[in-house]
Amino acid sequence: MSNIVEVHGISKRFGDFQVLDNVSFDIAPGSIVGLIGPNGAGKTTTLKSILGLTDFEGSLSVMGIDPRHGRDKVMENVCFIADVGVLPRWLKVRDALDYIEGVHPRFNRARAETMLTETNISMSHKVRQLSKGMVTQLHLALVMAIEVDLLVLDEPTLGLDILYRKQFYERLLTDYFDHETSIVISTHQVEEIESLLTHLLFINHGEIVLACAMDEISEIYHEVLVPPDHWKDAAYLEPIHTRDLLGQKAMIFENIPRAELAPLGELHVPSVADLFVAKMQTRSGDRP
């Protein structure tokens, strides 16, 4: 099967501000992609472009459809959860089920109801009566009952406490992910989703600064704990990031063979969080 999403050189600007600058990437079926970047990097705009919720230049297709011209067609195969609080406050839980059942051909009402029985949410609740965490539970239950090819999550757990956040991702992985549906998650909290991901996309200042599969990371990137006597040699190999760690320096190298790095110190696979910091700093001079 070909890619679910193909993005080729999309750009967007608001006045003087370049939100997206020639962004390209693909999403393969069955992958879980983390779109990671600092606030204002262009994550939401990228996702909205995929969903047909915003205009842009360049070409983009979601299962062969240009979302700018067929948002309603795209949405038959794509689900979307923006951060909490986009469910209208006046909506009753029962009515939400009625509505989605009425407009979405692939909604499985029984499934949503089953999932809701495991929460404290009742059918007669209005959204305004629910806590932030419960609204997210509700939205997740609604979305997980729709069989789609792509699920787009934009900072889905923003503002939730740790219990709900953990539960959210557990649910997503155990109840939903079946290796056929693809998921894109945007976040600036890398640690939380690191273990879920199959692919990484780093975005900064509207540009993609890293795009690779998780299992490629260990081949391309190495973190070396360098003791002081090797600092000079290590610096010569141009680490993309250096930080002090208990009297040693932890350096991250890109595309340097293991054999060259091994003599310098202890080798690790860098964590996504460290890699993220490294990548953000290499491209943007304005960060410490």
């Binding site: 309603d72 689900c79 609080g85 406050r89």
Partner: peptide
């Protein structure tokens, strides 16, 4: 109230 993001996430033209 941003709920447009919900309404537009459904296949309704």
């Amino acid at each position: 109230d941003r709920s447009i993001l919900f309404w537009k996430s459904l296949p309704v033209s």
